[in-house]
């Protein structure tokens, strides 16, 4: 049976930490309000961009924790074929997703008559920012999964929410950084 008190006690601290971290992403958005107003096409891509990053890093984290539990991956830093296959595959998925996302968003922007609908520049921004973010997040998820596994904590309850929240922050900063550098 479900114990309401227990669930609340377990999740509230993680949720509050996540809320606090996400304020930083919000600050970044708020501080760059002028850039976002000047380039309305950019804001449209923010939720999708965060969704791709979040999905890729949580898929990665749960794959690694399954691998660790089954003994296919050792919690040490060494040359691992399984780990390499996973990293390469997810990087490929990320590359395709960010390119397509950039092109579709550019299409929507030009259809809706929103500025910043250059079919070369826009996908290049999402692609560059996306790949940089995904590489950072995958490295992060490997490290945290190893650390957490060594301490005997189940990665699912803590790693995934915190990782996706940090991912939002890294993703938004990277997107704004690359966009302002590109223009």
């Amino acid at each position: 049976m479900i114990n309401a008190k227990e669930v609340i006690e377990e999740s509230l601290p993680v949720l509050t930490v996540c809320a606090a971290i996400s304020i930083m992403s919000g600050m970044f958005l708020g501080n760059n309000q002028e850039l976002l107003k000047a380039l309305p096409g950019l804001l449209i891509i923010v939720p999708s961009f965060n969704a791709v990053n979040g999905n890729i890093s949580s898929v990665m984290a749960s794959r690694i924790s399954s691998g660790l539990h089954m003994g296919l991956i050792k919690p040490r830093f060494h040359e691992s074929g399984v780990l390499r296959t996973n990293i390469l595959a997810m990087t490929f998925v990320a590359a395709i997703s960010f390119l397509l996302l950039g092109m579709v968003a550019a299409g929507i922007n030009s259809y809706a008559g929103i500025e910043m609908a250059n079919f070369i520049v826009f996908p290049s921004i999402t692609f560059t920012a996306g790949i940089l973010t995904v590489v950072m997040l995958m490295t992060g998820s490997i490290f945290t999964s190893y650390l957490i596994y060594r301490h005997g904590i189940d990665p699912d309850n803590v790693v995934v929410p915190i990782l996706t929240t940090i991912g939002d922050f890294v993703g938004i900063s990277m997107l704004l950084l690359i966009a302002s550098a590109a223009i």
Partner: peptide, 21 residues
């Protein structure tokens, strides 16, 4: 891995564009 994850990730990326709008 690519076959299993790419369609789902793409689908939800495109749903995200509505949120962006």
């Amino acid at each position: 891995i690519i076959e299993e994850t790419l369609p789902v990730i793409l689908l939800f990326a495109f749903v995200g564009l509505f949120t962006g709008g």
